[in-house]
Design a protein around this nucleic acid. Structure first.
Lengths: 216, 216
DNA sequence: ATTGAATATGACCATCTGGTCATAATTGAA
DNA sequence: TTCAATTATGACCAGATGGTCATATTCAAT
């Protein structure tokens, strides 16, 4: 995904990045961003050394601090750009998706997640880092709920499902949606590991587990 | 929980801690351990400064490095002691629990988890830190699966449940058990947050969701 | 009271960190 | 070609970090 110009301009206004960075050639901006989320995802906040980032991104330290007010601002920048990326990703998915039944829609979403996370290991790591890491240098990570795009999409599926009487509606849609995404998340992390089951079997179990529970 | 003498002796043999630490008075050992898991849980691995630990635990820096070969060994020590603690906790729970039906046993487990995590915020934070943190200074955190005690216990409940035809057995017990604990975990983290529902309502939804799924 | 071993201590060290800044290189308009 | 503005650079800085070590203290056994 290309970094959105409007978003960049907004970040300049909010003093998260400097105008110098906005004026930079596209490929340089991309290089810095990609290197940053890779290193953050791999080594964490403290583990990313500005020196290393500069070396691997091919810029000098002096330049770095002309682009970003501080290391903490780099993190915030990465989070916000990544948030944009997720938003686009979910939106595209929503447009492509043609299914009607809730079970098919959930399956479609699950498949897309699995495929995507296999494709983009770096983004995956960064996502996990932000989701689990603690606060750093005044950047309260709890303010950035990267999962909300997923949650909102699933909640929408659940809402329709309740309307069409496919899904129970005795508890809040948002709550049920949350539990659904917890299960999907759990299934996903199983995808990476052992795999005693084929992908089709995983999908079958997911849907069956979701809709029917563990009852014999 | 008192730190187990046998465990300590084993850690000395494995050169994770020095013999000096083993010979220390109980309260001092406890103080160091408690302070360490609190600071690790609060600030993470890099965020815990040995100086601060020494200050808050009331020991000198020189002493610290007579107790532990390095900071990384302190972390390993904490993880292994904590692992012991979890093992004891689950064992006690298992002995106290008298229920027969799988749904009652799962409920009992869930209640115990909620109660315990409310009581011991420090341990909770440390647990989350270990579960989510990335590797540090040669300590591969993936080697320490702190959740396995929970997983094993739940898997046992599921196994019995399958035998008594309460729980479906079309997939591996271990897999189903994993999904059950994923849901329980999800419910737990909801406990901390918004709480539009009473605890009883949460429990009812958990069981109903687990056994019956989201089907209308 | 003496002695020898175990333990405690904090000044000290090399290294690394995020961040600065004076200077050099590049750019683009006139 | 000139020149002013923008961007690039890396030596440098103060502070903090994990870790060391010579010395001081404590303690138990005689």
């Amino acid at each position: 995904m290309k970094i959105d110009e409007n978003t960049i301009a907004d970040l300049v206004k909010r003093s998260i990045i400097n105008d110098t960075f906005r004026r930079l050639p596209l490929d340089k901006r991309e290089r810095v961003y990609q290197t940053a989320i890779r290193l953050f995802g791999e080594y964490g906040y403290d583990g990313l050394a500005v020196n290393q980032l500069c070396r691997e991104a091919g810029i000098s330290k002096g330049s770095f601090f002309q682009y970003f007010p501080s290391k903490a601002h780099l993190l915030e920048f990465c989070i916000l750009i990544f948030d944009d990326y997720l938003s686009h990703w979910v939106n595209e998915l929503r447009q492509q998706e043609k299914a009607v039944l809730a079970r098919d829609r959930l399956l479609y979403f699950y498949r897309a997640l699995v495929t995507n996370s296999r494709l983009h290991a770096t983004e995956q790591k960064f996502f996990l880092f932000i989701n689990h890491a603690m606060d750093h240098a005044g950047v309260s990570l709890e303010d950035f709920d990267l999962e909300r795009h997923f949650h909102e999409y699933i909640a929408e599926i659940v809402r329709r499902g309740v309307e069409t009487r496919e899904i129970r509606g005795d508890y809040e849609v948002e709550f049920t949606g949350y539990l659904v995404s917890v299960i999907i998340g759990g299934m996903m992390s199983r995808e990476y590991r052992g795999q005693r089951y084929t992908r089709t079997e995983m999908e079958e179990y997911l849907i069956s587990f979701l809709f029917d529970g563990i009852k014999a």
